[in-house]
Amino acid sequence: MSNVIANAPSNADTMTLEKEGAENGPAVMADAQRKSNRSETILYVDGVSVTFDGFRALNNLSFYVEPGELRAIIGPNGAGKTTMMDIITGKTRPDTGDVLFKSETDLTKMDEADIANLGIGRKFQKPTVFESHTVFDNLLLACSGGRGVFNALFHRLSGAEKARIDKTLTTIMLDDKRDEMAANLSHGQKQWLEIGMLLMQEPELLLVDEPVAGMTDSETEETAKLLRAIAKEYSVVVVEHDMEFVRDLDCKVTVLHEGSVLAEGRLDHVQKDPRVIEVYLGR
């Protein structure tokens, strides 16, 4: 995908509509383009719609994330950001549309645990850590490896695992909180711990929902730094409200509105789009 602002919904419409009729020229081209899109992507969301009791939360949503990309997704309340996350992580099933991971795995058929084990980590909007466990145990539980019941029953901590946990503790700046109960952490520290837990899962794609909500300015800065560092190793999708933070991330932005993609591109391009200005950035 280029950095040109693409009108993704209409684009996707064309593709979906002409999927069957492969004889005419543009359709073949579109099909070819579609295939090339798929082969390059780590996350491929195409024509996804979902309805809750008549309310269309997602309306033919399509977008693609390349491997190693850091992507920010913005949009006003009710634009469908969290629903989109729910669909990618298997919490909600779409009515129509495809969601592919690494161009081949169909995520719409799998549940949360399967998808997590495929290598998609998700951070919630509200920081969610295991409050009755120590920071160390939180990371231990997130540590990749056997997820089976009996594996867990007879599991013993290996040196390698311990080393990884220590490394992550350093990354998320919680070294000295190692034996602290997660419940006793500050709001920002919980956010970091949750990000650390995602890292322990060794995911290929990280979905991060509003990581800086409720953080202090300095914490926000630290978090942006943390995410940029992480984005060097993993593909990351960040959902965020905070425009300054998105600017700090310095990445491609997708604007959602009423369940579809309104605009896509660099933040300064997007900010100039009149429709975006109208629906989101204010008049």
């Binding site: 992580t89 919490k91 549940d111 949360e112 645990a113 997590a116 084990n117 980590g121 998700r122 919630f124 969610t128 850590v129 295991f130 409050e131 009755s132 466990h133 145990d137 231990l140 539980l141 997130a142 990749s144 997820r147 019941v149 867990a152 029953l153 007879f154 599991h155 837990m197 899962q201």
Partner: peptide
Amino acid sequence: SRLGKVLIAIRDAESRVRFTGY
């Protein structure tokens, strides 16, 4: 055991455990 820790984690934040792959 680690299983017990997972159980406590389920008690406190079930969907987090799910999204962690358990």
